[in-house]
Every structure is written in C-alpha cells, then in structure tokens.
Simulated scan of single mutants.
Amino acid sequence: METVSPPSLADDFRDVMSGVCTPVAVVTTMDGDRPHGTTVSAFASLSLEPPMVLAALDRRSELLALVRAHGRFGLNVLASGQQALATRFARKGADKFQGVPWRTEHGLPRLPGVAGWLACRVHRLVDGGDHVIALGLVDAAQRLAVSPLTYHARAFGTHLPVTGERC
C-alpha cells in the first residue's frame, strides 16, 4: 500500500530540506561505450571499513536501471563554479554529455575538475520511497584541493569556514 503525504506536509518538508546545505554530485555509469549521468544532492559517506558511500537515485531514472544492470557507478563531487554541470545533469534526456569533456576512469565516466571522485561497486540497492539508495563499495578515490559545490536555500554556493573554528 502506497503512502501519500498531504500536500502541506510535502511542501513543509521540501521547505525544511531547502534549509539544509548539501554537497552536489553527478553520479555516472556506462551503457556500453555511452556515458550516462544525473545530478544528486542526496549522497553521503557511509563507512570507512570498508569504504562505502550511499547515493539516492530516482526509482524511475534510466541511470538507476543502468546502475542496477551493470553494478557500478562513479560519484563526481562537483567543485565550486561547476553549477552549469549540476543544472545540465539534473535535466531529463539522453544527451547530457553532449559537448561536456569527460574521460573513462576505472571503467566509469569522470568529469574534469571535480572536487572529488569515487569509483564504486554496488553493494546493495535499498528501497527508499520514490528513490532507491545505492550502497557503493569504493574501489578508487581522489580529491582535488578545490572548494565543493553546495546547494542551500534553492541556490548553489560553496562552504566557507567560520573564522577561527576548526574541528
């Protein structure tokens, strides 16, 4: 039985979540020699031993079907200034990579200049409402010394540390 939230709760939930600063990434995979990707803001580190991440993918997406079939995905953590890539990969359609430079790394599409790169094998796919959570075992990781792209209050930005505060 499907649970449907009342419209006011859905709007209130969306409003609360817009106040949470999230990183922005493009999840990628291959279909033969053709790259596919989609923008996500719901991803996180899950485990250090073994290294794992999670990424939430729309259950109706073509990308999810490919990740399910091939069992692998790349996570391109976008850098500050890459909001055009975030917007491009958030739209529907099969031509998202048209005119976008990329290369294959660990058999997965990698975008240049990203703040972070992870190559992952699917450990498990877990139902999560209108999304499916891909739990990925990390096979490769690389970070560039650039600020990440974030999304907060329905706008792109980046993280700035509070002066004098460090963890």
Rank of each mutant, 00 (worst) to 15 (best):
V122I: 07
H131F: 03
G157P: 00
P161H: 12
P50Y: 08
R166V: 15
L54F: 08
S41V: 08
R88H: 08
E62T: 14
S5D: 10
A90L: 00
M30W: 12
V16A: 13
E105N: 05
G37E: 10
G129D: 08
H70E: 11
T29F: 05
D127N: 12
A65N: 01
A115N: 06
C120A: 03
E2G: 02
P6D: 15
R14A: 15
S45G: 06
T22G: 09
G164N: 09
P7Y: 06
I133K: 02
D15C: 02
L144T: 12
V132S: 00
R154P: 02
D130S: 11
V67F: 01
S47Q: 08
R72C: 00
A56Y: 03
A84V: 05
F97C: 01
S18T: 10
A155D: 11
A25N: 10
T150K: 05
T150E: 06
S5Y: 15
C21K: 09
F156V: 00
L54V: 14
S61N: 04
L9H: 15
D11A: 14
M30R: 10
A55F: 09
G136I: 05
L125C: 04
D127Q: 13
R121H: 14
R60H: 14
R91N: 04
G19T: 09
G81D: 07
L78Q: 02
Q82R: 04
L75D: 05
R143I: 10
